[in-house]
């Protein structure tokens, strides 16, 4: 701070070491401090077309499809109330996650979420590519079995769709249900990920929501990779998990029908 800014004699500015030493206590702001305040946006290609992504120093905070840059910026600011600045290139982990679905090495910034919302999204993030789970399964998984409707609301508020695959959560009756980017995008994504949607729909029409193998005695969701390996001759359908269990079947350890904690 230069003394040029001083204005006239000041009775407190005595020419002594205390004043001089106080004046030497300034420090430059550390590099990277702006990144603690502002987010950066990038545009990346995804399975449903180009998406805009906002990142903070903590990780990816927001992803939206079907918006232009101005709409994205406006919706980001409305939700996060932070400055949004142009970013450089997207980080390789983000490009890979959107291309392959593998989210290893990708950090997410979920600070703006309520604990319930975060629990819902963390449960959704465990659903493997190529499989789907009902809303009620998420509710069971997070220990709130009656909060099925609230699960749907929390998934609808997912700030990072695709990266947290909320599109893999579907209705218990076999229909695919709603999606932040619209139901057609949800169906497109699930088919791209090779989910057996047609088979799930056919079974649901027959009131079959669980599939067991009479050789292993294991019961699964119909989209589970284990269920899809059961040969037709050994395939047993069930309307409820309780029916399967009373017939001597145990829940699959991969797809965890009934939402047993991991």
């Amino acid at each position: 701070m230069s003394t040029v800014e001083s204005h006239g004699p000041d009775p407190f500015d005595q020419d002594d070491s205390l004043i001089a030493d106080l004046g030497a206590l300034t420090a430059g702001a550390p590099a990277g401090l702006l990144e603690r305040v502002a987010a950066r946006w990038v545009r990346v290609d995804a399975a449903i077309g180009g998406v805009y992504v906002a990142m903070t120093d903590q990780g990816v905070a927001y992803l939206r499809a079907g918006q232009d840059q101005e709409e994205f910026a406006a919706s980001f600011r409305g939700r996060f109330a932070r400055p949004l600045l142009p970013g450089g290139g997207p980080p390789p982990a983000l490009v890979r996650a959107l291309r392959t679905g593998r989210t290893g090495g990708l950090h997410l910034d979920l600070r703006g979420l309520r604990p319930f919302e975060e629990a819902v999204l963390r449960a959704a993030a465990t659903i493997p590519r190529g499989e789907i789970r009902p809303y009620a399964w998420i509710a069971e998984r997070i220990g709130r079995p009656k909060a099925v409707r609230a699960v749907g609301t929390a998934l609808g508020r997912n700030p990072v769709p695709l990266l947290i695959p909320c599109h893999r959560v579907t209705r218990s009756d076999g229909r695919i249900g709603q999606y932040v980017f619209g139901a057609p995008a949800k169906e497109h994504l699930l088919r791209t990920e090779q989910v057996n949607l047609d088979e799930v729909g056919t079974l649901a029409a027959k009131n079959v929501y669980f599939v067991g193998s009479d050789t292993t005695g294991v019961v699964c969701f119909p989209s589970c990779r284990d269920a899809r390996r059961i040969t037709p001759a050994h395939r047993q359908g069930f309307r409820t998990l309780a029916q399967a269990e009373s017939a001597g079947y145990r829940p699959c350890r991969h797809c965890r029908p009934g939402g047993a904690p991991a």
């Binding site: 800014e5 001083s6 004043i19 206590l25």
Partner: peptide
């Protein structure tokens, strides 16, 4: 004191 003598703000 910080405002006056460290960062040199006017009174």
């Amino acid at each position: 004191i910080v405002l006056r003598h460290v960062v040199d703000l006017p009174i």
